[in-house]
Computed example of a mutant assay.
Amino acid sequence: MSNLLLNAIRHTPPDGVVEVSGQAIGPEVEFAVRDACGGISPSDLERVFDVAWQGDSARTPQPHTGRGAGIGLAIVKGVVEAHHGRVRVANSGPGCAFVVTLPG
C-alpha cells in the first residue's frame, strides 16, 4: 500500500488529488489508490508491473532528485500474488487507478 501511495503522490501535481479507498466485496477486500498523474500510455499499461519499468515523460513531469529503480510495482505485484490476490491498473479520470484485491 505504501508503495502505491508514494508513487501516486510523487506523480501527482501539487494541485492534484490522491484518493485512497477500500471496501469489502463478498469474501474479498479491495483497496484502490487513484492519482492525477496524467495517465499512462496504453502501450505501457501492460508493462507497469515489470521489473525495471519506469514511467515516461507522458506522466506529469515534476522536479525530484532522482528516479527509482523501477522495482516498486513489481514488488507490489509479487507481494499481492503471494497472498493469493490480484493487482491491476487502469487510466481513470485525470490519472491512474491501482486496485488491489485480497482474499478476506
Rank of each mutant, 00 (worst) to 15 (best):
S43R: 14
R10Q: 11
E19K: 10
V29D: 03
A36L: 06
V18K: 02
S41G: 13
I9N: 02
D35A: 03
D35L: 04
A36S: 15
H11I: 05
P27V: 08
A24G: 13
T12G: 01
A32N: 07
G39C: 02
G39N: 14
T12I: 05
S43H: 14
F31Q: 00
C37P: 13
D44I: 01
S43D: 15
E19F: 07
D44T: 04
P14Y: 00
H11T: 12
S43L: 11
F31V: 15
A36F: 02
S21T: 09
S43Y: 11
V29T: 10
C37Q: 12
A32T: 13
A24C: 14
S21F: 04
G39H: 09
P42D: 15
G38D: 02
P14L: 06
I40R: 04
E30I: 14
A8C: 03
G26R: 12
P13C: 11
P14T: 00
V20G: 06
G39F: 04
S41D: 14
G26L: 11
D44S: 09
V17E: 14
E30N: 10
V29R: 09
G22L: 08
S21W: 01
R34A: 12
V33E: 06
D44C: 04
S41H: 09
P42G: 12
S43I: 12
S43W: 12
A32R: 11
G22D: 01
V29Q: 08
R34S: 08
R34N: 14
S43G: 14
G38Y: 05
A24H: 13
G16T: 06
V18C: 01
T12H: 01
A8W: 03
G39V: 06
S43E: 15
G38V: 03
E30F: 05
D15F: 08
A36D: 08
R34H: 13
D35M: 07
T12S: 03
A32F: 07
F31G: 13
V20E: 06
Q23S: 07
D35V: 01
I9Y: 00
H11V: 05
D44P: 03
D15K: 07
D44M: 02
V33Y: 01
G39E: 05
I9F: 07
S21M: 01
G39R: 12
A8F: 03
Q23M: 09
G26N: 14
D44L: 00
E19M: 08
V33D: 11
P14V: 04
A32E: 12
G26Y: 07
D15R: 10
A8I: 02
R10A: 11
A32K: 09
S41R: 13
S41V: 11
R34Y: 10
S41C: 08
A36V: 04
A32M: 10
V18H: 05
S41Y: 05
V33F: 10
I9Q: 07
E28V: 12
P14N: 03
I25E: 14
E19Y: 08
G38E: 13
I9R: 09
P27Y: 04
H11Q: 12
T12L: 01
P27H: 08
G26C: 10
A36H: 13
G26K: 13
D15T: 12
A8D: 02
A36N: 06
Q23I: 08
S43C: 11
D15H: 10
G38P: 11
V33M: 11
G39Q: 10
F31W: 13
V17T: 09
Q23Y: 04
V17H: 10
H11D: 02
P13M: 05
S43V: 14
I9M: 03
G39D: 04
P42T: 09
G38R: 14
V18N: 01
